[in-house]
Simulated scan of single mutants.
Amino acid sequence: MAAGVFEGLRLPCGLVLKNRIAKSAMSDSLGDGRGAPTAEQGRLYARWAEGGLGLAVIGEVQVSPHYAEKPGNLVLNAGADLAAFRALARQGGGNGAQIWPQLGHAGALAYGPISAPVGPSALDLPGLRCGEMGAAEIAALPAEFAASAARSQEAGFGGVQIHAAHGFLLSQFLSPLFNKRVDGYGGPIENRMRLLLEVIEAVRGAVGPAFAIGVKLNSSDQLEGGLAEAEALQVIAALDRSSVDLIDISGGTYFPGAKAASDSGGRGPYFMGFARQARRRTSKPLMLTGGFKTRAQAEEALASGVVDVVGMARALVLAPDLPEQWRAGRMPAPEFPRFAETPEGGVTAWYTMRMSDLAEERAPEGARDIGDAMRDYAARDAARAEIWRRHFL
């Protein structure tokens, strides 16, 4: 138990995480195509809760069905099936775990077959086209996030995470690569972070002081012309003055042709240097996501005093009971697959379909071929997109 891996953490709002291990957000694409959780998704989060997690974050829960990242996303709007969300909250909140929806809006990266992508500014680039959001659309966003947060609270979740990383809408506003506006939401970083701060303020007003609010933030976009570390640190300083309870640091942007940090094959954790700088600018609890694979890495990060929560994703897909394994002194690291080839999107597809195997309690013989995973993932997206169009459009 060195480095406090299994020590509780009290967040500023008063909520207590039972340990310092979090399942960071992943797009599991296990929604039913109508924005509602499925029984399979509930089983997946129940497995993680039973495996000993302190916190699980449900990736890509949309505040609007019109700008989703994938047709398997959940949607927490006025038409949401709250009974299904309550069931997911109960299952994922078993064994003392916390489970939070990650509230987001894909913006320019919205899935084309079910949306007309929009962003801070119009873009016409190879593989990325979007329209520009109008002033009225921007003004409506804080209330949309607030309404989804209130529904999360009503459904029994203990908190929400506001998604401002990885190139989705709030991240796009922060990034000079996406944001070319000349009004009060563009130009200097003080303007580009305005929408994020307005969303946080609206969410807090909707849920009250005892409900947890997290924010996921890029340390940088890892792209030329994107958000750089110096400006990200200015955002950290602003978040320190806000009512957020947990800042989740990550990095990288889903931009056409860009390689995700998690696909780089480098040694993790990836953003520890930035976290050290962030620690000097905030007293808020910090979560670090990206590249944690071993117990030794987690303990070292926590022992440094820089990081308060270790965010893991793929390691917990490979071993959903990893926290309990660590507690018992077993499995210092799961066995990660090695791929002979990694076509763009292939590794993500492989792990997404591995989550489906866990959710459906399948035990496939041997490792799934990455090409098969990509085909299965695409076929499921196509089927769910048709359901989505019939339901929402």
Rank of each mutant, 00 (worst) to 15 (best):
A110M: 11
L55Y: 08
A68K: 06
E40W: 05
P37L: 01
R90F: 07
D81H: 02
L53E: 06
A139Y: 15
G96V: 04
C130M: 05
F85Y: 01
G52F: 13
E137R: 14
Q102K: 02
R43N: 11
F85G: 00
R90A: 08
L76E: 00
A140T: 12
R86W: 00
P117F: 11
G127N: 12
A83L: 05
L55G: 03
I114K: 03
T38I: 01
L76K: 00
R43A: 09
N95D: 15
E50W: 05
G51P: 14
E60Q: 13
Q102R: 01
G127D: 13
L125E: 15
Q62K: 07
L44H: 06
E69F: 12
N77M: 06
L109Q: 14
G119Y: 08
G51L: 13
V75A: 04
L103K: 02
V57F: 07
C130A: 10
G107K: 06
A135K: 12
A56L: 08
P113Y: 02
Q41W: 01
G93P: 09
P37Y: 00
A84P: 01
R90D: 09
G96W: 04
A110P: 08
N73D: 06
H66E: 15
A139C: 13
P71R: 00
Y67I: 01
A49Y: 13
A39D: 03
W100H: 11
L123D: 05
A68N: 07
A106D: 12
G42W: 03
A108P: 14
